[in-house]
Design a binder for these strands. Structure first.
Length: 211
DNA sequence: AGCACGATTAACT
DNA sequence: GTTAATCGTGCTC
């Protein structure tokens, strides 16, 4: 099994909307300390863009909590919310401009046994279909805030994988922004790819197990 | 110093 | 569809 290249900083150092769209289909990988790969293909993202965006944490200016958003593209912005949940964002655009893409869902690919353990109380379909759920599955927490995913030795990164064609991408408003004002509340900055697109159609060793 | 609330999840009626 | 869980953060007094 050959390894695909990791996404470079030039991928993240672009318009946040482009990055959010293009991340669909790409593979989020966590390398555990024993070398085990736990990964999934990204199927849902949201863009948060600058201090004017009322839905973006950067709206309140630079604080201890949100400082990672001002970092260079490819930096992780991991924050804690609701007293119990961690969320993973990937910082975009130029160094000094606060913007990031929230990863809201992945389709499990590798390390399934570990994911099953970490998400043991929930059915397969709901292992990684939410921003806090995927952080549970990959054990991503505050120590990852500020991590450079483009550093050659980072144990968390995004690997190149097959793109998702435009015809399959659903674009709509971001979710969970209850008290956010218009026009920000309704900006179509959420990108989704359907789960069916990621099912393994076999073709290699598992033809016999299909059908 | 106090307080309202959150880029959510899981359990429950 | 409704709601408890659970606490750091940012804003007001």
């Amino acid at each position: 099994m050959f390894m695909k290249p990791r996404l470079k900083r030039s991928f993240f150092n672009r318009s946040t909307l482009d990055v959010a769209r293009e991340l669909l289909g790409q593979r989020l990988v966590k390398l555990e300390s024993n070398g085990t790969r736990v990964s999934g293909r990204i199927c849902e993202t949201e863009a948060y863009i600058g201090m004017k965006d009322d839905g973006c944490h950067a709206k309140s200016g630079l604080t201890h909590r949100n400082r990672s958003m001002w970092g260079q593209a490819g930096t992780a912005y991991v924050y804690f919310t609701y007293g119990m949940h961690w969320m993973l964002n990937l910082v975009t655009e130029s160094d000094g401009f606060p913007a990031a893409v929230l990863l809201r869902g992945i389709i499990p690919q590798e390390g399934i046994e570990l994911i099953a353990q970490r998400r043991a109380t929930q059915p397969t379909d709901h292992w990684t279909d939410g921003p806090a759920k995927l952080c549970q599955a990959l054990l991503i927490h505050g120590e990852y805030d500020g991590l450079d995913l483009c550093h050659p030795q980072a144990n968390l990164f995004v690997e190149q994988d097959d793109k998702i064609a435009d015809e399959f991408v659903t674009i709509g408003p971001r979710v969970g922004l209850n008290r956010v004002e218009e026009p920000w509340k309704s900006k179509p900055w959420r990108f989704q790819a359907p789960v069916e697109l990621f099912v393994d159609r076999g073709g290699r060793d598992n033809d016999a197990t299909e059908r």
